[in-house]
Structure formats: structure tokens, C-alpha cells
């Protein structure tokens, strides 16, 4: 446990000193501020536009950090051979991988928190009346980012090129939001093989709609606590699947 915590700490420090990390946060803050411009031309819907656009920007920049962070996290260490320093110690590879995963997640959450606080300030300046929507959407966004980080970590070990890992992760993120449409297509399809193939494919891609509360909070449905329970169960299981797969690859990797 102590070794995992040390790696989490080390990863967090490493990420927060990364120039790219800082640039992404700054760019994210700028984009959140830019939502004011969209709000200004939205008439009565000003606050709604600033709220939704700000949340979307926070999530997208969290995604960028997750993808670039996860893809380069282990690949860079392998290429620079600094990984030898860690793996030659009595440190199980699983501890190393879990520590890296949670360290990266922690750094992403902190950056999202920065963006969230800035977003809140902007909303209050524009006369927003405090509502739970903002605060409830955040944990759901974190669930989505956790899933994509686990997936990106797996792809970074699966593929030898960082570009292909990024492409695969982005593709899975996009398909993850297209699950409802894919399911609809599978049901409409008259070709039994393609319908079956699509349904089998749905097993592999993450179902982001389970955790996409930010996009659907105005829809009628169960209370957010119930939705969060299902969403977090899903994220937990999917993250575990990705981490075990990554571990299967990492445990047999020869350096």
C-alpha cells in the first residue's frame, strides 16, 4: 500500500510539473471564459449556455489531459529507461500500474477542480442562482474521465506508438457516446450477422451515456443519487476490466 501511495504522489508531482499540463489548464480556463461570448448572444438563455458550455469544456480538457497523460505516462518511462529504476526494486508491477493510474487521475481531478472553481466564479458574476446541477454533474464527469484514463492506459501498453494509442482512445470516447445510436442501428438492421456484430461490439466500447448526467439532467428520470450509483458501478467495473487487461500486458512485458 505504501508503495502505491508513493507512486501516486510521485505521478502527481510529475504531472503537475509538466508544461503541457499547465498549458491545458490555462487553455481550459480561457475556453471557459470564452463561454461568456456565447452566452452574450444567447438572449434569455445566457446563464444556461455559460453553465453547459463551461461544464463541457471542463470535461473535454479533462479528457485531453487523461489521453495525453495516460499515453505518455508509461511509454516515456520505457523509452527513457527510467522504468528500470523502479522495476528493479521489490515493487510488484501491479502496484506500479495502479499507482500511476491513480496518480494521473488525481492530477486530472485537481485541474478539473481549478476549472470548476473558475467556472463557478464566472457564473456568480453573471448572476447565476445556486443550483445543485453544477455540483452533481462534476462527479459524473469524473467517472467518465476515470473510464477513459483506464482505457488510455491500456492502449498505451497495447500499442507501441503513442499516436495510435491516442487515436484508439479518442475513437472509443466517440463510440462510447454513440452507443444508443449503435444499439438503434442494430435493432433496425435486417442483417442478423451485422446486428449481432454490432451488439457484440457494444460489449467492448464504454457506455458513456450511463455517466453523461451533465448532458441529460433536465430529462425525467430517477433521482441523481440512483443514477450515480449505477454510473459509478459501471465505471468501477469497466475501469477494473481495463486495468486487468493492462496488467496482463504489463506483467509479461520484457524490457
Amino acid at each position: 500500500m505504501a508503495s502505491v501511495l508513493s507512486i501516486i504522489h510521485y505521478t502527481f508531482i510529475q504531472q503537475s510539473r509538466n508544461h503541457l499540463y499547465m498549458v491545458v489548464i490555462l487553455f481550459g480556463l480561457t475556453m471557459i471564459a470564452a463561454s461568456l461570448l456565447f452566452g452574450a448572444v444567447a438572449g434569455d438563455q445566457e446563464i444556461e449556455v455559460i453553465l453547459d458550455l463551461g461544464l463541457a469544456v471542463t470535461e473535454l480538457f479533462g479528457l485531453i489531459m487523461a489521453i495525453f497523460g495516460a499515453v505518455t505516462l508509461i511509454l516515456e518511462e520505457i523509452e527513457s529507461k527510467t522504468i528500470y529504476l523502479l522495476l528493479t526494486r521489490p515493487l510488484p508491477r501491479s502496484h506500479y500500474l495502479i499507482g500511476r493510474f491513480f496518480g494521473l487521475l488525481l492530477s486530472i481531478f485537481v485541474s478539473m477542480l481549478f476549472m470548476g472553481v473558475f467556472h463557478l466564479i464566472l457564473l456568480f458574476v453573471k448572476g447565476w442562482t445556486l443550483s445543485a446541477t453544477f455540483f452533481v454533474s462534476f462527479p459524473f464527469m469524473i467517472l467518465k474521465i476515470s473510464v477513459i484514463t483506464a482505457l488510455a492506459l491500456f492502449f498505451s501498453l497495447f500499442s507501441t506508438s503513442s499516436v495510435s494509442s491516442i487515436v484508439f482512445t479518442v475513437l472509443f470516447w466517440l463510440l462510447g457516446h454513440f452507443g444508443t445510436e449503435l444499439s438503434f442501428l442494430a435493432n433496425k438492421s435486417k442483417n442478423a450477422i451485422s446486428a449481432l456484430g454490432t451488439k457484440a461490439f457494444l460489449f467492448l466500447i464504454p457506455d458513456m451515456s450511463v455517466m453523461n448526467y451533465r448532458d441529460v439532467f433536465t430529462l425525467a428520470g430517477p433521482h441523481w443519487t440512483q443514477q450515480f450509483l449505477w454510473g459509478s458501478s459501471y465505471a468501477f467495473l469497466y475501469c477494473l476490466a481495463c486495468l486487468f487487461l493492462a496488467l496482463a500486458l504489463f506483467s509479461r512485458k520484457e524490457f
Partner: peptide, 8 residues
């Protein structure tokens, strides 16, 4: 999951 979703 009973989560709210958009129609396709």
C-alpha cells in the same frame, strides 16, 4: 441502468 438518456 435506469439512467436518463437521449433518444437516438
Amino acid at each position: 441502468s435506469p439512467s436518463s438518456r437521449f433518444p437516438p
